[in-house]
Design a protein around this nucleic acid. Structure first.
Lengths: 209, 209
DNA sequence: TGGGGGAGCTACTCGCGGGTAGCCGGTAGG
DNA sequence: CCTACCGGCTACCCGCGAGTAGCTCCCCCA
């Protein structure tokens, strides 16, 4: 319950409005490194240059904070995907552009994806993650133009999402093993192009049923 | 430090030797339902008809127990895969039989796979899981006969594994949502055949680089 | 029928970390 | 220069669950 009269606040570090975003960003990084359980609120607060009570001014609980991190990432990706597909015309183009958007984000927002794919989720955080995966599959589903049974289409969509996740996970783990060097330029394009070829080639060979 | 002189032990429920296996099996089910964190040792012990101290006679710690569950499953799957591929002759056959083995086990040993794919692995348990995924990718890698760069081959292998995991996860979640009905007969074949088609078709369209 | 032994259980300790009460110091205003 | 206010921090509480000490009761044997 902060009434927030705007006093000048002379030598302030980060004024409250931006502070929330800052805290979210820090939380994202710390969660990315350690996962949900292993990360403590003290750790996040300290990393952000504050202490726990401040954190609790902005977020009701650890779970809440984590969910916000996850859903923010998920929403961002899904938004980008939808926007990108708008501009594409052919089915193949839609698949390719989707992979491009996906891997661009994996490479540029690595922390976010480490949370989504490397650490998995139990308990309170499980639901959001499943919803995200389901949303990805549902996004891909209508892009599959073959005339097949709904459950077959859904399975193929899950497979295509799996291709992306598999390649992304492998890349993330490799990067981690190498101590997070700066990503080689063009790596996102390469990952996307190869995955798209695999997926598209696979989809082309599906028989109508 | 049990010296285990073999006295008859008349009206024993489960004699120590089998008891360990029993406990492992129960642990697998309970972990499958709740994941690592949410499951307590009390819960496992009680579910097995005993109490905590007994559990600690066979396993040094919760983490140890969990790791044993995970590696047992992983080893079983990898063993079956290796055996199955022996008998196959053509590359396509090897891919197909691998998917068959994989989905057979997903459908028949559902609990094991819920642990591997649906639940979380942070901290201590993370390493084993990653090793398992890496082993799967490494298993698929040599089955890809195209002449391409090593990193490209590895990425494709990760993609193929992703197809399997994506389809498996989707099926598991669907089963859970439906309250774990008995799997429809032939579902493993269907999942395997469709996934194999997707993967094989995709691999066929890869360009040599 | 009494005694000894051991398997298994009850009931505890202890550390950890999420969440919070209440103090403290600095700044601004008189 | 003194005082009042308030942002932020220190220091605490509390529940939970992993791991364990030690009791109990049952079974076997004398």
């Amino acid at each position: 319950m902060v009434l927030n009269d705007e006093r000048p606040l002379s030598s302030e570090r980060t004024p409250p409005p931006e502070r929330r975003d800052h805290l979210l960003a820090v939380a994202r990084t710390v969660f990315a490194n350690g996962g949900f359980q292993a990360t403590t609120m003290d750790e996040i607060a300290h990393e952000a240059g504050f202490t726990k009570p401040i954190l609790y001014q902005y977020f009701d609980s650890k779970t809440e904070l984590y969910r916000e991190v996850v859903t923010h990432t998920a929403d961002t990706l899904l938004g980008s995907l939808r926007a990108a597909v708008e501009d594409a015309t052919t089915p193949r183009e839609r698949i390719e552009v989707s992979f491009r958007v996906f891997f661009d984000m994996v490479v540029e927002e690595t922390d976010a994806f480490r949370i989504l794919f490397i650490h998995s989720h139990e308990g309170e955080t499980k639901g959001d993650l499943r919803a995200f995966e389901a949303a990805l599959v549902s996004f891909i589903e209508p892009l599959i133009a073959v005339r097949i049974k709904p459950d077959h289409r859904r399975q193929l969509a899950a497979g295509v999402v799996g291709i992306a996740e598999g390649a992304a996970t492998a890349w993330l783990i490799q990067q981690e093993a190498r101590g997070w060097p700066p990503p080689r330029p063009g790596v996102a394009q390469r990952l996307a192009a190869r995955s798209a070829t695999l997926a598209w080639g696979g989809l082309r060979s599906i028989q109508i049923d």
